[in-house]
């Protein structure tokens, strides 16, 4: 890839906050997002996700390094960058007092649409984000998921080339989370490049083509969701046998499929084994238990969790974190 096909290109970006209190800095942040793809920037609190988004959206000055968005330099061509981006910040940045339609009209007008075009665009977006029924409801009275959807709709008034979405589902209930995911998928279908930050592996998994894992202001791993999980995490196969008496027999059956040590919890009659090839292990184990005529109460595959991936990365990657002011 080069800057022609990269919607976002950052190299060696550094940012240190004075006093260090306000947020996490960046220590040599590199990122490349291909045009028309969705990139998930995944990391725990304080990894520098929001700082990265703010720098790329021209809201924050960088100390060192280079960043280009939609082909323009975020420092020297900030005004041009702003013409090509949309930003959905961590908190729904909408006017709480105005209604959904008034919000869309306001930001439409500020994007220099004519009154007529702004109205048409507002109608279209209300429809697209399933907000027609709430069109005349003040934003402060919306549910969390609806508010986020309105926020997204406002960011899309002029169809930005690159959309930054900072922790879109933090603080939402599961229903709201699904609503927002559906909304983001719609954008992706329309070809918008999306850079989204999240703390949840599941969210990145659901939405992103590629994931960059951020820790202490640097990208420490990058790849497709499956790449990352197979490289850094462990899949677990959990079985629960019917009776305590079956545990020893079950252990013998499972041993050949295990890629590591077995975990046995006699009290709940649960045995967990780490597996390499998920599908082969699942089908193999099922057949083996059928052949041995041992009844299973439950059988399930667990994907690695973000915690596991992070634990793995924490133990294997030096952080180079700048000394912090206590």
């Amino acid at each position: 890839m080069n800057s022609r096909t990269s919607a976002v290109l950052a190299s060696g970006v550094r940012k240190q906050y004075a006093g260090g209190a306000e947020g996490a800095g960046l220590n040599g942040f590199d990122l490349e997002v291909g045009a028309g793809t969705v990139c998930g920037l995944l990391g725990p609190n304080g990894a520098g996700k929001t700082t990265a988004i703010k720098i790329l959206a021209t809201l924050l000055a960088l100390d060192a390094g280079q960043a280009r968005v939609a082909g323009f330099n975020v420092v020297t061509e900030a005004a041009l960058v702003r013409q090509h981006i949309g930003l959905v910040g961590q908190y729904a940045a909408i006017d709480e007092i105005l209604t959904c339609r008034q919000n869309l009209m306001l930001f439409g007008r500020l994007n220099h649409l004519s009154g007529r075009n702004a109205r048409q665009r507002a109608d279209h977006l209300l429809e697209q984000f399933d907000l027609v029924a709430a069109a005349n409801t003040p934003a402060s009275k919306l549910s969390g998921g609806m508010r986020r959807r309105l926020d997204l709709a406002v960011s899309l008034i002029v169809s930005p080339q690159v959309l930054f979405v900072d922790e879109p589902t933090t603080g939402l209930d599961p229903a709201g989370r699904l609503e927002v995911w559906a909304a983001i998928r719609t954008l992706v279908r329309e070809g918008t490049t999306v850079l989204l930050t999240t703390q949840y592996l599941e969210e990145a998994d659901q939405l992103a083509d590629r994931i960059s894992m951020l820790k202490a202001g640097r990208v420490i791993a990058e790849g497709t969701p499956d790449d990352l999980k197979s490289t850094f995490g462990t899949n677990w196969l959990d079985i629960v046998v019917d009776g305590v008496a079956d545990i020893d027999a079950a252990k013998a059956i499972l041993q050949p499929f295990a890629a590591g040590e077995l975990h046995i919890d006699a009290e709940s009659r649960r045995i967990s084994i780490p597996v390499q090839d998920r599908i082969r292990a699942l089908t193999g184990v099922t057949t083996a238990f059928e052949d041995a005529q041992i009844a299973l109460e439950d059988l399930s595959l667990r994907r690695p969790t973000l915690d596991e991936v992070f634990l793995h990365l924490n133990s294997s990657v030096p952080t180079n974190r700048q000394p912090e002011v206590a």
Binding site: A57, L87, Y91, I94, D95
Partner: peptide, 13 residues
């Protein structure tokens, strides 16, 4: 506080 200022700042105005 609501991020509206940041929204304005990220727009071409």
């Amino acid at each position: 506080a609501k991020g509206v200022t940041d929204r304005f700042r990220s727009m071409p105005m």
